[in-house]
Design a protein around this nucleic acid. Structure first.
Lengths: 236, 236
DNA sequence: CGCAAAGTTGATCATAGTCAAGTTCTGTGG
DNA sequence: CCACAGAACTTGACTATGATCAACTTTGCG
């Protein structure tokens, strides 16, 4: 697709970013965008790379993480459709991406290159305000990830990420909320070893709180998970 | 002191924030500031409180941390003279402080209330750019705190914080770099128990890397600490 | 001199990571 | 339709780390 072509927003699409703009602004902003497909595991921006574009996923799921000492990945947050990222591209001086963003599922993406995003940000003070507010909420999120990691036990982190992911990427079924996550992915986002994740999920399955299938987790009782995530350690 | 009175910047004062402004802008910005003293342990902003002012320490030392589950504090970064904080006050919608900031040493502070900071930010696009760039570097810092906490051992974190603090608050002496930190404070910023900090410092003292006095730590060999902070775990 | 803050030391313990050696699942090609 | 490769997951044994607690000593200040 090329800039200027009509961008069709997917049905049910909501974006905190676009919501902060007026209809006229939205029209201009969308007109300046370029749409492109994203495939699974595709890296959309790499931490440390020169920030060269602003991105807005339309469909699919991406993950933002930081690489630590060549190898291990540190999950920071999901990027859902409507979540603007690559904000570093909007800074005055050329700067680098703070985190790596990688597609977890395939989907589609709107992008604005440096010229376009600079132009828009200069033209619409509204957009600048929206972006600053977004940046603040991301910062809050990141600090929270740290707080969670430091102050919660492994089972609590798992429960918490299940609850959080349920809200973000859960599909409501008749017998609970279904998450398309492998043990390994859950372990990754909860900052736990895959073995710990496996053991804990089994225990919860025995207790009837979740049900497991290869690649998916069915949450049968959100309240009980929320309870575990909140207070004192889990009791075996 | 009241707004409009002449603000005297302390000798040797440097500020990334002010450096990004033109002399004329600096003049206007300083004229709109209010100066006030800060005493030890004074809380300058509280996480969750409605952001009502922007702050710039002139002298002294402050610490930014987050409170987790009523009680424990999670250190995020030092605030040195020249470090602007309370950026939440600049957001378009009323919003709350993301972190708590508390004075570690006494000193003095410039503040701008909501009206003043809104006025300045509207008047000087330059200031907005500077603030965004600051926000980005804070965000980077915070993510880094997380990465460090997750991927380094306790002795590595201690070594790292000693090195980092040396650069920020160290006083160069003839026999090394002196830090005014109690064991407890070091433990706090390195996210380690005071006992672990004590034990580790003793070990390093025996090895001649540091020397301890009540309330101060003398770093005798920065390179060796940097080495410890970097690669594999410590060897006893 | 006395008292509180700062620091020490040893014993103990819970957490959760690591590793090895499995089992189960699922999609693919013969 | 079945076999099979490889991914996903399990399970148990082991272990390092570092927190916690209690009891103690040292330091510096008024």
């Amino acid at each position: 697709m090329k800039a200027g072509s009509t961008v069709r927003l997917p049905p049910g699409f909501r974006s905190k970013f676009l919501d902060a703009l007026t209809p006229t602004e939205i029209k201009t902003v969308l007109a300046a965008a370029r749409e492109e497909p994203i495939s699974r595991r595709q890296v959309l921006q790499r931490q440390g790379e020169l920030a060269h574009r602003l991105c807005l996923p339309l469909t699919g799921l991406v993950a933002a993480y930081r690489l630590v000492d060549e190898g291990s990945k540190l999950f920071l947050r999901w990027g859902l459709p409507g979540d603007l990222f690559g904000l570093s591209a909007l800074l005055a001086e050329p700067s680098t991406y703070l985190v790596t963003v990688e597609a977890v599922h395939q989907g589609a993406l709107l992008t604005w290159d440096l010229a376009a995003s600079r132009m828009l940000i200069g033209q619409f003070p509204n957009m600048l305000r929206a972006v600053n507010s977004l940046a603040a909420s991301y910062m809050d999120d990141f600090i929270d990830v740290l707080a969670v990691r430091v102050s919660l036990t492994a089972p609590q982190r798992l429960a918490r990420m299940l609850v959080k992911s349920a809200r973000q990427i859960g599909r409501v079924g008749d017998d609970g909320i279904k998450l398309d996550l492998t043990n390994e992915q859950l372990a990754f986002i909860a900052q736990v070893s895959p073995f710990t994740a496996s053991r804990q999920l089994n225990q919860w399955q025995v207790r009837g709180i979740v049900r497991k299938n290869r690649g998916t987790i069915l949450l049968r009782s959100l309240p009980r998970l929320e309870e575990i995530a909140k207070v004192g350690s889990y009791r075996p």
